[in-house]
């Protein structure tokens, strides 16, 4: 047992030497188009729940962090290719993704997906309806499977616009993304029905980057323990607390 411990200790030392070299700055990759998780504010900076969370995690893990934005479609290929070191972009932990990259423990509770429809159209039968979703999201796959007519758009904005202009009966997306839109009190309302599709959201890392993963896991755990994570979740209305 002692020998084994010594072995891991030695491994940890060499790993952290290599680590210090490659990670003097940790580059945090995000999308910047998914409020309240992450968005570009009026000042042109990355802002949102994940910005505050990420900065706090880096402080606790004693890392220097830097924010980078990347298109959603190529966000994982660019991570494994080494263009940045983490993905912190409202990415749900799924089995498919977990095969290719590693996730930290989740920092949000599983966020249900919700439907947004035009006011007055709440009675629509969803199974036979036209439902808009963003291309290549878990919601898109879900709609394809439930048998409704799926209409795919490149960006979240376009899915909302599609409901407004009557191209689609409803849009399916993360509830925390739809809530501020429904709250505006305009023409769009949220349905009672919710779908539990994704797991919680976690940070994505390269599978070979175990050291960094442990640091962030520890930092997330400490934020869960002292309640500061719940404060952030409440502030940005991300969903249920831990």
């Amino acid at each position: 047992m002692k020998k084994l411990l010594l072995g891991t200790a030695a491994l940890a030392v060499t790993a952290s030497v290599a680590f210090a070299g490659s990670h003097s700055v940790v580059r945090m990759g995000t999308e910047g188009a998914y409020p309240p998780y992450n968005f570009i504010n009026d000042a042109g900076q990355v802002d949102g729940f994940e910005r505050e969370l990420g900065d706090e995690l880096c402080k606790r893990a004693e890392l220097t962090c830097e924010w980078v934005t990347n298109e959603w479609d190529s966000i994982i290929p660019n991570l494994v290719s080494g263009n940045y070191d983490t993905i912190i972009a409202g990415m749900s932990i799924t089995a498919e993704r977990d095969e290719v990259i590693d996730f930290t423990q989740n920092y949000t509770q599983p966020d249900p997906s919700a439907y947004l429809v035009m006011a007055g159209n709440e009675g629509v039968a969803l199974e036979g309806a036209v439902i808009a979703a963003q291309t290549n999201t878990i919601q898109a796959s879900f709609v394809a499977e439930m048998g409704a007519t799926l209409l795919e758009f490149a960006s979240p904005d376009e899915t909302i616009a599609a409901v407004r202009n009557g191209e689609a009966d409803a849009v399916l997306a993360d509830k925390s993304f739809l809530t501020p839109i429904a709250d505006e009190g305009g023409d769009l309302v949220m349905l009672e029905r919710e779908e539990l599709i994704g797991g919680g959201v976690g940070m994505g890392l390269r599978e070979s980057d175990g050291e960094l993963k442990e640091k962030f896991n520890a930092a997330i755990q400490s934020m869960k323990d002292d309640g500061s994570l719940n404060t952030l979740i409440a502030k940005w209305e991300i969903g249920a607390a831990f």
């Binding site: 290549n136 394809a144 007519t149 799926l150 795919e152 758009f153 599609a162 191209e167």
Partner: peptide
């Protein structure tokens, strides 16, 4: 928009890339 996941070659290529 692509309807019912019926798209052109690039649509499917990016589906697989994803």
């Amino acid at each position: 928009p692509a309807r019912q996941q019926q798209g052109d070659a690039l649509y499917y290529a990016s589906y697989f890339a994803d």
